[in-house]
Nucleic acid binder design. Structure first.
Length: 861
RNA sequence: GCUCCCGUAGCCCAAUCGGCAGAGGCAGGCGGCUUAAACCCGCCAGAGUCUGGGUUCGAAUCCCAGCGGGAGCACCA
C-alpha cells in the first residue's frame, strides 16, 4: 500500500525533513539563476518570434511596496508565460529617476540629489531581485544618467525643429509649495497632484509641446486600442481630449472694424442668442472695455483682478452664483440683426474656443443662470415638447422678448423655472430654421453662415498644449541657448548632452526660478550661432518627457550613437503588453502616444501607437482604504516578504481576484498561499517514478485533469484570469494528493505528470518553488525555460458526458451519454426518461429543444 | 449634473455561445494525527445570483427601470 511504501506519511503528517522552507529555497536558486542568466532577450541568432512585455518603470523611492509587488508580479506572469510559449521575450527594467522627491529630500537633508537617487536605486534593486522578476537586467537604464537625458534633449530638439516645441507667455498653473509650474494634467481638483497644495495661476513664458495639433489623431487612434486597453482608460482619454463639434460664428461689434468669432455647439439656437459673454482675462475684453465709461472701466478692472486672484478651486465650484460686468458694448446677431449686449463674466474661459460665447439662456443652463442673475431676456427657440415628427407649434413673443407660451404646449418658461430646455425638439421662432430637428437645424444654420461668410463648421478641444518647463534642478536641462541677437538657438547635437551642473554650491530651495540660473559658469555660454554672449535656458523638462519614449530606449539601452535604433524598433516595438497603474491613464499614456506619433511623422517609427495591449492592476488596500502611514493601516512589503516569502506573496496577489480589481489585504491569506505551495512542493518529493516513465498507463482521471488544465490555461492567462489559473492549479494539486493517498499511489505515472505540469505552470506565479519542484522531479534548471506542454487531445474527450433533461426549463433528469450522441438519439433517450415523464404527467409535449450532447428541454402544455 | 464600471455563500471570488449556480481560497463545523496544540490529512455545511419588469423553450449572463457601491469628468460654450 502507498502509505507503507512511504512511511513518512503513515501518520498523516509531514516530518520536519519534508518541510517547505521558502527561505532556503530562495537562497538556493537565486545564485543559480544569476549564473544561468536565462532572461536576456535578443541574443544573436535567436529566430524565435518576439514579444515585448513592459512594466511601467518605477520612480526609485527606495523600497518596494505592495503596489509594486502586484504590478510587477502581473507583468512577470505575462513575460514568463510567453517565454514558455516559445517567444523571445523582452522584459526590461529601468528607473524613472529624475523628479521632485529627490530634490526635496536633498533640500531637507542636505544630501546631493544624485547620491540620494542612486542610493535608493541600489536599495530598491536589491529588493526587486528577491522578488524574482524575470528582467533582462543588461538593459537597465536611469533617466537621470547623461547617457539617457542626452537623448531626451535630442528628442526636444527634434520637436523644436518641427515647430512642435515652442515658447509662449500665458497663464500657467503654479504650485506655491513646489515653486514650479504644472501641466494641466498634473492639477487634480485644483490641487497639485504631487504635494496637494492649492494651485495658483501665474503669467509666465514657458516651453510647450503642441499636443493639440495631434488631438484628432490621439482621439481617433483610440479606436485601434479598444478591446486591448481597459475601456475605462480609453474613455478617460476621450474625455480628456474632449473634442466637441459645432460652429464658429462671426458677430459684428458696434464701433469695431473686426468681427468677433464665437464657438458654439448649438448653431441651431442662434436665434435664441440674447447677449454675448467674453472672458474677463481675454485680450478681447480689455479692448472692448477701453471704449466704455470710466465707471465701467473701473468696475471691469476690479472684476478682472478678482478673477485672477481666484484659485482653480473657486473656479471649479459650479454652484457659486454667476458674476459679471456689462461692458457697454453691443454685438449684432448675424442671423437677425439684433443688438446683443456684451458682458464680461468668469464663467467663460479665455483659453477655450475664442474666449467669447453667444449666450442662449433658454437652452443653456449656465447662460440661463447668468440671465436670471442680471435680468437679461430669455428666448425659447426649441420646442422640447414637440415630437420629432408632427405639427410644429409656433411661439410668439411680447415686446420684452418674453415668450408667450400657448397654454397647451406645456413648455415651461426657463426664466421662471430656472431650468434650461436642453432636450431635443423642434426649432421655433427661428425664421428659416423653423420646424427643423436639432441635427437638421445645425446643418442648415452652418450652411447659411458659410454662404454669407459669417461662420463655418468648427471643432474644439478640452486638451491644451503640454507645458514642459519646470523651475527645478533635478531634471533634463532644456537644450536651448537664449541669445540677445539670434533668439532661441538649439544647442548643436555634437554639444549634447547639456549636463546638469553639480548640485554642490547651488541653492536648490524653490524660489520660483530655476536653481540652474545661479550656476554662473554653466548658464553663461557663447551663442552657438553668432558666438556672442548668451545664456542657457535654465529650466528643466517635465519628467513625463523622459518617460514618453523610454520604451524605445530599452531596445538599445547602451547605444551611444542614437536615442534608439529604428531597426530594433521594427523588430520589437510596439510594446505587446504594457502593465501599470491606472493613475497614469491620462498623463503618461497620452504623452507617450503623442511622442510616438511625432516620431512616426519624423520617419523614425513604423507604428503610431506605443502600447498594443494595456493591463491596469488595481490598488492594494487595507481594511477598505488606501494604505498610508497616517491611517496606520500600512502593510509593509518587506515584512510580509520575510514572513511568507516571495512565492506566497506572488501567489496571494495573483489569486486575490481579477488583476484590475483592488485587493484588500484584509481579505486575502498569504498563509493559505503558502499552504498551497507547500502541498504542491511535497508532492514533487513523493513522486517515485522516474523521469523517463511512460505516461500512458497513468491514472486516467488525473491525466485528464492535467491535460484539461494544459488546454485551458493559455486562454485564461491571455485574458489575464490569473486568479482562475491559480484556482485550477489548486484543484490539480488536490486531485494529485487524492490520487496518491487513496488512489493508485505516488508511483503512478499520472502523479509525476501532474506534478511536472504543476511545476511548469507554477513557474509563472511561484518561480522559486517551481524551480525546486523541478529539481526534485529530477530535472536541471531552469523550469523558466521549459516549453509549455501541449495538451493531448485524446485525453480531453470524455467517454461519457452528462446530459440534462429539462421539462419547461426545469432540470428533471440526468443522462450519461456519449459526447457524440446525435440529437435524435438524445431526444429519444429523454422521452424515455422516467423522471421526465413523471414531470410531464398528462401534459402534451408541444416542442422539444435539443442541444446535443448537453441538454434536452421538453416543452409541455 | 454628465459618462462609465460593478452588485453571485459570512468574506474574497468562479461559472466558453443564454443551457445542471460552485472551480478555488478564507473564515466556520466534525473527524484523524498529537500528552496537548500548531502543522498536516480527510470530511461537512452554506447562496438561487441587489429589487421589479421584459425578451426567450431556457436568464447570474441580453433589454428597460429602480436601489446600492466604485471610478472618471465637470462653468469647455
Amino acid at each position: 500500500m502507498a502509505e507503507h511504501d512511504n512511511p513518512q506519511h503513515d501518520s498523516g503528517r509531514a516530518p520536519d525533513a519534508e518541510a517547505w522552507d521558502f527561505a532556503a529555497i530562495q537562497e538556493k536558486w537565486t545564485p543559480v539563476w544569476e549564473e544561468l542568466d536565462p532572461f536576456a532577450a535578443g541574443r544573436p541568432g535567436d529566430t524565435r518570434p518576439r514579444k515585448y512585455v513592459l512594466d511601467m518603470f518605477p520612480y526609485p523611492s527606495g523600497d518596494l511596496h505592495m503596489g509594486h509587488a502586484e504590478a510587477f508580479g502581473f507583468g512577470d506572469i505575462v513575460a514568463r508565460y510567453w517565454r514558455q510559449q516559445g517567444f523571445d521575450v523582452l522584459h526590461p527594467i529601468g528607473w524613472d529617476s529624475f523628479g521632485l522627491p529627490a530634490e526635496n529630500a536633498a533640500i531637507k537633508r542636505g544630501v546631493d540629489p544624485r547620491e540620494w537617487t542612486y542610493a535608493n536605486i541600489a536599495q530598491q534593486k536589491a529588493s526587486f531581485k528577491t522578488y524574482a522578476p524575470s528582467f533582462d537586467w543588461s538593459r537597465e537604464l536611469h533617466t537621470s544618467d547623461p547617457e539617457y537625458y542626452k537623448w531626451n534633449q535630442w528628442l526636444f530638439l527634434e520637436l523644436f525643429k518641427r515647430g512642435i516645441a515652442y515658447r509662449k507667455e500665458g497663464l500657467v498653473n503654479w504650485c506655491p509649495n513646489d515653486q514650479t509650474v504644472l501641466a494641466n494634467e498634473q492639477v487634480v481638483d485644483g490641487h497639485c497632484e504631487r504635494c496637494g497644495f492649492v494651485v495658483e495661476k501665474k503669467s509666465l513664458t514657458q516651453w510647450y509641446f503642441r499636443v493639440t495639433d495631434y488631438a484628432d489623431r490621439l482621439l481617433d487612434d483610440l479606436n485601434q486600442l479598444e478591446g486591448n486597453w481597459p475601456s475605462k482608460v480609453v474613455a478617460m482619454q476621450r474625455n480628456w481630449i474632449g473634442r466637441s463639434a459645432g460652429a464658429d460664428v462671426e458677430f459684428e461689434i458696434e464701433g469695431r472694424d473686426a468681427r468677433v468669432s464665437v464657438f458654439t455647439t448649438r448653431p441651431d439656437t442662434l436665434y435664441g442668442a440674447t447677449f454675448m459673454v467674453v472672458a474677463p482675462d481675454s485680450d478681447l475684453a480689455a479692448e472692448l472695455v477701453s471704449g466704455a465709461s470710466a465707471e465701467v472701466r473701473m468696475r471691469f478692472q476690479d472684476y478682472l483682478e478678482k478673477t485672477q486672484a481666484e484659485t482653480e478651486i473657486d473656479r471649479l465650484n459650479s454652484e457659486r452664483p454667476k458674476t459679471g460686468v456689462f461692458l457697454e458694448r453691443y454685438a449684432v446677431n448675424p442671423v437677425n440683426g439684433e443688438r446683443l449686449p456684451i458682458w464680461a463674466a468668469d464663467y467663460v474661459l479665455a483659453d477655450y474656443g475664442h474666449g467669447a460665447i453667444m449666450a442662449v439662456p433658454a437652452h443653456d443652463q449656465r447662460d440661463l443662470d447668468f440671465a436670471r442673475a442680471f435680468d437679461l431676456p430669455v428666448r425659447v427657440v426649441v420646442d422640447t415638447n414637440a415630437p420629432v415628427t408632427g405639427v410644429i407649434p409656433v411661439i410668439h413673443f411680447d415686446e420684452d422678448g418674453e415668450p408667450i407660451l400657448p397654454e397647451d404646449a406645456g413648455l415651461t418658461n426657463p426664466k421662471e423655472t430656472g431650468v434650461a430646455l436642453t432636450g431635443v425638439g423642434r426649432v421655433i421662432n427661428s425664421g428659416p430654421l423653423d420646424g427643423l430637428s436639432k441635427p437638421n437645424a445645425i446643418r442648415r444654420a452652418v450652411e447659411h453662415l458659410e454662404a454669407r461668410g459669417l461662420g463655418r463648421a468648427a471643432k474644439n478641444y478640452r486638451l491644451r498644449d503640454w507645458l514642459i518647463s519646470r523651475q527645478r534642478y533635478w531634471g533634463t536641462p532644456i537644450p536651448i541657448v537664449h541669445c540677445p541677437d539670434c533668439g532661441e538657438v538649439a544647442v548643436p547635437s555634437e554639444q549634447l548632452p547639456v549636463r546638469l551642473p553639480d548640485a554642490a554650491g547651488l541653492d536648490l530651495k524653490p524660489k520660483g526660478t530655476s536653481p540652474l540660473g545661479a550656476a554662473e559658469d554653466w548658464i553663461n555660454v557663447a551663442c552657438p550661432q553668432c558666438g556672442g554672449p548668451a545664456k542657457r535656458d535654465s529650466d528643466t523638462m517635465d519628467t513625463f518627457v523622459d518617460s514618453s519614449w523610454y520604451y524605445l530606449r530599452f531596445l538599445n539601452a547602451n547605444d551611444d550613437d542614437r536615442a534608439f535604433d529604428p531597426a530594433a524598433a521594427e523588430k520589437w516595438a510596439p510594446v505587446d503588453q504594457y502593465v501599470g497603474g491606472v493613475e497614469h491613464a491620462i498623463l503618461h499614456l497620452l504623452y507617450s502616444r503623442f511622442i510616438t506619433k511625432v516620431l512616426f511623422d519624423a520617419g523614425y517609427l513604423g507604428f503610431t501607437e506605443p502600447f498594443t495591449s494595456l493591463l491596469n492592476q488595481g490598488m492594494v488596500l487595507m481594511d477598505g482604504s488606501k494604505m498610508s502611514k497616517s491611517k496606520g493601516n500600512l502593510v509593509e512589503f518587506a515584512s510580509e516578504l520575510s514572513a511568507h516569502g516571495t512565492d506566497a506573496l506572488r501567489v496571494t496577489l495573483a489569486f486575490a481576484g481579477p488583476p484590475e480589481d483592488d485587493i484588500d489585504w484584509a481579505d486575502v491569506s498569504p498563509t493559505g498561499s503558502a499552504k498551497f505551495l507547500a502541498r504542491a512542493w511535497r508532492i514533487s518529493g513523493e513522486v517515485t517514478s522516474s523521469p523517463d516513465v511512460e505516461w500512458k498507463g497513468g491514472d486516467a482521471a488525473l491525466r485528464r485533469a492535467t491535460h484539461r488544465l494544459l488546454a485551458d490555461a493559455p486562454g485564461l492567462l491571455e485574458q489575464f484570469k490569473f486568479n482562475v489559473v491559480v484556482a485550477r492549479l489548486m484543484e490539480l494539486v488536490n486531485l494529485t494528493r487524492k490520487t496518491i493517498d487513496s488512489g493508485p499511489g505516488a508511483g503512478d505515472p499520472a502523479v509525476r505528470e501532474a506534478s511536472e505540469v504543476t511545476a511548469m505552470i507554477l513557474n509563472l506565479f511561484a518561480p522559486y518553488t517551481a524551480e525546486d519542484m523541478w529539481s526534485r522531479l529530477g530535472y536541471e534548471p531552469t523550469v523558466a525555460l521549459v516549453q509549455w506542454r501541449k495538451a493531448d487531445p485524446a485525453l480531453l474527450v470524455e467517454e461519457q458526458v452528462t446530459a440534462i433533461v429539462q421539462v419547461n426549463g426545469k432540470v428533471r433528469d440526468r443522462l450519461e451519454v456519449s459526447p457524440k450522441v446525435s440529437a435524435d438519439e438524445l431526444e429519444r433517450l429523454a422521452r424515455g426518461s422516467e423522471a421526465a415523464l413523471r414531470s410531464v404527467g398528462d401534459g402534451e409535449i408541444i416542442k422539444v429543444v435539443v442541444r446535443a450532447p448537453k441538454l434536452v428541454n421538453l416543452i409541455v402544455r
